[in-house]
Nucleic acid binder design. Structure first.
Lengths: 342, 342
DNA sequence: TTGAAAGCGCTAACAC
DNA sequence: GTGTTAGCGCTTTCAA
């Protein structure tokens, strides 16, 4: 391994000078700088990150903590952070929290030990008090997909309510009156916010949402299937269903189709997220696009700025809006159409 | 920040003793060890990773380089490595190579600077000579999804030929005689290996594979769609198509269905990988399962062992086999069935 | 503009 | 068993 000393010796200067050259510090004579640069090139010198981090207490590394990397959604999140890292000459340090409070905290601590002071946290299982204290400790910590009022300027999140409102309005515009909801249970309140949005719009249109038409299930394919089956078993009336996310929506479509129903002619289905699978299912899924990769990139740049002490205007928050991706899973109902599925 | 000195001072011992306690070194008296442990606990001391890495030249960090994290396949790969990291108390350092030779190399170098000496590389764009040199430099470097004969014991890869043979045989067993292939172009020779496997089996059954029935396209949904359309435009005869991977298979299914063909009654379609989308599409896709997450975990543990100098028996290689996931995209043809689609 | 030197937090001989 | 001490490779005063 070639060290700064080697370069200094060969170039006939002190290590301090080499360090200055490496950092593009202005205080070096032109001839000297050129010579050092040449030697660096020849020797293939690359500064040791650990030594640098040890003395400067910063490591040009951005950390990200998510529940489970193998899920597409989190893969996209990580990819967004990676882009930001790449653009800023940072490296990416990853930790899965495996959906546990303890490892969530442990992950952050261990990131800190690596002098990683820009951190993106997708936290679902820690309470606000814990998070508040953490944020106090780590200036470069930003939260993605979670809103904490006291830390508004360090939260990058999505307006779930408006997204849910949007897609519900869309369904109503398409002539749907009897709408069912496949919801989920989560530590964070995304499902609740989305449900809230749906209910608001329904109320505004004087449309009912009987509790029998709301099913809670796990947020994956199977959960969607089960929820749809329950809906049918209960004999509920509905011409459209809003699912918590794409996974559940596709699961529901599967169950409906397996039961002999046509999508969208007999039941329309919409999702949320716009993952890859929404273009894999038949019919392609109409859904609200969750710009998670962009958001993650944004969050990462924010974290980097904050960690470098470039305090953003402390007063603003960072709210993103989902947009409608219209595909083929919603049927346009005519006045003449039969009543909703019974 | 609490340092080892603080602990030493409070516990009334030397830093060396603290270090021994932290590392579970045997050379410490029981009373002393207990006291130190207590102080560590009270002060919340956590050793600084960078300092440790600086002196010990190793960082308990495993690096992984893949082309693009946002793709499900690579997300799963990363998740596998993360599991291994987690199990071994390692952290995960990630780099995207963005499908470029230059950043592939750059990524590795920068991993090295972080004293990261267990590295998993999914390389597609570097030539063997470069890789050989790299491997020489870094004992803990293992290749995933690529086989380099000289480095056999450090390659974790999949038997693509046998996988392709398996699925082709399956199709033939189901009565298919006219099989088309949607292939792809890649730097690594996975597509070629799979094509090879298909051709072998076809030949063994005296079945023809006219060049017109082989289409090359990009390995994603759109590529699959385009390939399927070309196949139809050419007026080729086939009752089944083998796609390079699930993405292309689903794309092809989309195109066939859009053209009014029924899958699988009119055309059977099979894929490779067994990604999530194979259970999202209709009908669900029959495919060869690529155990990438398991393989990545295995590769990571191998890399860790190698980096710690625990030389595995140098002579063996690490070959995995894909398995058939039978779902609903293949039709069983009867002798009485019409001739293949013309 | 440049160099000398102290020290970041930790480990590992080597003493005692 | 436990302490002393010399660095690991780098940055950063402080002097010159």
């Amino acid at each position: 391994m070639v060290t700064i000393k080697d370069v200094a010796r060969v170039a006939g200067v002190s290590t301090a000078t080499v360090s200055r050259v490496v950092h593009d510090g202005g205080q070096v004579g032109d001839a000297c700088r050129a010579r050092v640069k040449k030697v660096i090139e020849e020797l293939g010198y690359r500064p040791n990150t650990n030594a640098r981090a040890l003395v400067s207490k910063t490591s040009d590394t951005i950390g990200v903590v998510t529940p489970k990397l193998s899920m597409t959604f989190f893969g996209c999140l990580a990819a967004g952070v990676e882009n930001a890292a790449h653009n800023n000459g940072y490296k990416l340090l990853m930790s899965n929290s495996h959906y546990e409070t303890k490892s969530e905290l442990e992950a952050i601590r261990s990131l800190q030990e690596h002098s990683c002071n820009a951190i993106i946290l997708h936290s679902e299982y820690s309470d606000e008090k814990t998070l508040l204290k953490l944020a106090d400790d780590i200036p470069g910590l930003v939260f993605i997909n979670r809103f904490i009022p006291e830390l508004a300027h360090r939260c990058v999140w999505l307006d779930n309510v408006s997204g849910a409102r949007h897609i519900t309005r869309y369904l109503i515009d398409k002539g749907h009156r009897d709408i069912a909801v496949i919801s989920s249970v989560y530590q964070n309140n995304d499902p609740q916010s989305r449900l809230e949005g749906i209910q608001q719009v329904l109320r505004e249109h004087d449309l009912a949402l009987p509790s029998g038409r709301i099913i809670e299930s796990t947020a994956n394919l199977r959960g969607g299937e089960e929820a749809a089956r329950q809906l049918m078993d209960r004999g509920e009336t509905f011409s459209a269903v809003v699912a918590y996310n794409d996974l559940m929506a596709v699961g529901a479509m599967n169950a409906f189709q397996d039961a002999g129903l046509r999508v969208p002619e007999d039941v329309s289905v919409v999702g949320f997220d716009d993952l890859y699978i929404s273009r894999a299912c038949r019919p392609h899924l109409t859904t609200m696009s969750y710009p998670i990769e962009d958001m993650a990139l944004y969050a990462a740049e924010l974290a980097i700025k904050l960690s470098e002490g470039q305090a953003d205007s402390q007063s603003r928050t960072h709210l993103f809006y989902p947009t409608l991706k219209e595909r083929a899973s919603v049927y346009t109902r005519q006045a003449s159409d039969d009543d909703a599925l019974a």
